[in-house]
Amino acid sequence: MQNAPVENVGVGDASIIEALRRGDDQVFTEVVERLHPTLRRVARGYLRSEEAIGDVIQETWIGVLRGIDRFEGRSSLRTWVVSILVNVARSHAVREARMVPFAALGLPDDPRSGFGPECFEGPGGEYPGHWSTPRTPWSEDPVAATLAGETRELVARAVAELPESQRTVITLRDVEGWTGPEVAATLGISEGNQRVLLHRARARVRRALDQHLLPMERRAV
């Protein structure tokens, strides 16, 4: 699923597009139902209010229908729909004046993988660039703990607090299970940039889990 080749994702899209062009509301409802959770999760990265999210989703579908005769199927249907949503959500966010440029890869002092320089030996150390203190494996199994609720809340909050670009990428990749090429195409960024954003996002969530799961006395700085 995670590594499905991108060309397989859109199998069946052509007949769906045909049905939508014919005005088949049964097929439209199925597509809306399938994509709705994804659209909501991505929209929430840009807008907070339920009202604004609802507006953005409606405007997205209007945009999809307006453009459907021109859609050539070079990307998958969901890639196309989500790329329209991102554009609509961003223009709403601009109007709400809480816009961060999409290209922003994070604060300059934000270590890319979530480990500050104090985690590694300096150039004068015995092994420069190697861990200065041993890493502690998580004692609790967070996969099991997510079912308990508290860990799940923590991860949801960590994702919600990410910068918009990172949040969108981790939502599509790790929550929705999309491929890297699909996400890059949706956002109009390179696959490499997509991975940089994803790595930073995962690093922040990992750090939040680390602080939550490590026993107090062994907790890293």
């Binding site: 409802t29 809306v32 139902e33 709705h36 959770p37 799940r152 991860v155 994702v159 929550v175 995962r202």
Partner: peptide
Amino acid sequence: TTITVTGRLASDDVDRLDEPTRAQLIGVF
């Protein structure tokens, strides 16, 4: 593990299509 745990957020019921929104979008269509 972080990737697996993040993936669990997908099973969130609050993001399912609700009835008023469904009706509204079918109307648009």
